[in-house]
Design a binder for these strands. Sequence first.
RNA 1: CGGGGCGUAGCGCAGUUUGGUAGCGCACAUGGUUUGGGACCAUGGGGUCGGGGGUUCGAAUCCCUCCGCCCCGACCA
Length: 565
Amino acid sequence: MKVTKALMPTLRDVPAEAEIVSHQLLVKAGFIRRNAAGIYSYLPLALRVLRKIETIVREEMDRSDAQELLLPIMQPAELWSESGRWDVYGDEMFRLKDRHNRDFCLGPTHEEIITDVVRGEVKSYKQLPMNLYQIQNKYRDERRPRFGLMRGREFIMKDAYSFDRDSAGLDDSYQTMFDTYVKIFDRMGLDYRPVEADSGAIGGDDTHEFMVLAENGEALIAYCSSCSYASNVEITEINDTAKEKLSEKPLLKVATPDKKTIEEVAAHLEVPQDNTLKTLVFDADGEKIVVVIRGDRILNEIKLKRLLKTDFLEKADEESIQNLFNCDPGYISPLGINEITVYADNEVKYMTDAVCGANEEGYHYLHANTDRDFGEMTFSDLREVVEGDLCPKCNEPLIFARGIEVGQVFKLGTKYSESLSAKYLDENGKEQIMVMGCYGIGVSRTMAACVEQNYDDRGIIWPKEIAPYQIVVIPVQTNDELQYTEAEKIYKELLAKGYEVMLDDRKERVGVKFNDADLIGYPLRITVGKKIADGIIEYKERNQSESEQIQPDELYDKIATFFKK
RNA sequence: CGGGGCGUAGCGCAGUUUGGUAGCGCACAUGGUUUGGGACCAUGGGGUCGGGGGUUCGAAUCCCUCCGCCCCGACCA
């Protein structure tokens, strides 16, 4: 392709709305254009990258014996009512009606449709296991689309669904997909980590997220400095081990007027914040519960939700706390609480002579000791992990990193096969419910995540496996007969050898061409300038700072080596 | 959905307070001079000033209303 024929509209300025690097660079380098909030056109350069990502995904999925199909974007409401999600999904689902006033939606995901297809066609244990996938647009009416392709309302996703006879089969399918994802992201040249994660509203047991490591990632992950453990901090387990009690002083009531926050109380009493107790009140499915954690810690609501096995969990409002404790929330504690269930973080068990509220306006207690002073409480791992906490697997310190979620694998179980009755007959002719898994890769997001991880102040640095073009050939002076002819010769030769090449034949100054080349991020740049008269051309890799002067006949081996390694 | 902000040429912006012929830079077109890291000169094309309504002799500017978009929060891939 010649640049003069191509639609690759690079910009000098970036639209003010672009906030993060991947969004700015993809717009500036002429890959994407926005048509509406969270809705983008993929221009030719972007489409080439997407196709390459898809090709890698297809090859590895096919290799794992998954089969590609294509499911509809527009889906009938009936199926979603059957699974119960028509009412649950809420405003995030794009809904529409046909001319007969029948309800439809634009698929935010495809569990219902795939289960409908499979239940109609798969009847025997002999047909299982089966894994079906598609690469298809998804639609979610996000409350706030942002970060360009990271969180759009229309996006491309590879979604796969496995159907097994039983949970042992699902374990195998899950492992196969996990291994396949590792191969996929390895091939894309991304720096990523699979992490243990929360299964959230989709439900199910095991789940891993695949996180591309990037400074601006929205997710926080904790990984072990010595073993392979890694998890989303939302679920990172903490093993708080017993500590020796230093002393046990008697309880002492002290006045703390107008000192309601942990900071204020600790400062007033001249006690470190890590020797105070924080008491929180929650409304869990209509029942009030109390949670106690160390004063300087943050409660992890996901852990609490899992412990309580509840869907609805919300901080109790100030008024109901007043009614329960007869004092301001700043002075409450588990002291003398009998009628309310009390949960505490494991760490609380080992605290000595701590500060806690007196359940009386304006007073706190010094020297509270959990086992001595508090009534019955359930201990569990409830706090948010902090960097330096010990690995739950090997007790070495945990390190934090930011990541962008580009893939997730789930064990769904029978959630959808049951509600939509996807059943098969086993060896004994007995009806059984299929066991499902689902496996997603955000294709368009992966492109953005890749940019987020691979750029410098000049532009994008595509990994060579997914770059839109592999090589750009630049004649310094397009007007110069010799320079242009030689450049075109190299361009044609590279095309003939099967490379994806762009010839920058514009009558622009060379600075413009270099800047665009760096911005667009071709892995390799070949420059033909004045020195061609002496048989010398220039070879430069995008991720190297120095270029090399070489002879044209060295070029092809060099390029072959570069793309082979 | 709550709070804040913005909408003027493809992009970045000024003009709005105080109503009086719609501007600047980049990009684009033509000609010329340049030519190894976003050149220079000249000329030119391009606007329902987000839409509708109102006030006024006159509205980008004042008033009403609708729409779009961005940021923070809550939520989420």
